[in-house]
């Protein structure tokens, strides 16, 4: 959790909420005059983190109607925008298992300048922290290529 974020969003962890998070991010980026290319990376990485919450965090809950929460904090400092995406789910080892494509974390690594996934203390759940520099010296997609994460595109059968 980020202390004193500028923006704190809390919503049911449902698919329709992910676009709302992108809207908030775009509004914040606009106010900070963030480079459009960096904003595009932010949107993609944050979308992947939120999608993980929607798809995987609460797979062990029996009542499908009662979704858990998706919480997002945005904090701008002088050098970077930090985004925290949190759930109160069963953690990374949940029975939801492997995501369909397995591209979420590799994309987060490739599109953010720093990131960290951690189990939340005490009340359970997972938090993904991502930091996006306003000015980059290196493209993070070159520093953390997706090909080096073990993810591979499907290979043709022939």
């Amino acid at each position: 959790m980020i202390e004193r974020p500028e923006v704190r969003l809390s919503m049911p962890a449902r698919a329709e909420g992910v676009g709302v998070v992108r809207q908030a991010l775009a509004g914040m980026a606009d106010a900070l005059a963030i480079d459009p290319g960096i904003l595009a990376d932010m949107k993609m990485a944050v979308t992947e983190a939120c999608t993980n919450v929607v798809v995987h965090a609460y797979t062990d809950r029996e009542d499908e109607g009662a979704s858990g929460t998706l919480d997002v904090d945005l904090l701008a400092d002088e050098a970077a925008l930090t985004v925290a995406v949190r759930d109160e789910g069963s953690g990374l080892d949940s029975p939801g298992g492997k995501p369909a494509l397995g591209l979420g974390l590799p994309l987060i690594a490739a599109l953010s300048d720093e990131f960290e996934v951690r189990d939340r203390d005490g009340d359970g759940g997972t938090e993904v922290l991502m930091r996006f520099l306003y000015t980059r010296e290196q493209d993070p997609a070159e520093a953390h290529p997706i090909g080096e994460t073990g993810w591979e595109p499907p290979v043709d059968p022939e």
């Binding site: 459009p36 290319g37 595009a40 599109l111 997609a141 997706i146 090909g147 591979e152 499907p154």
Partner: peptide, 17 residues
Amino acid sequence: VEPGVQRILDITGLVPV
């Protein structure tokens, strides 16, 4: 094309796939 759309295709290596 929107640069973000091109970027996800490029960095995932899916253009030739």
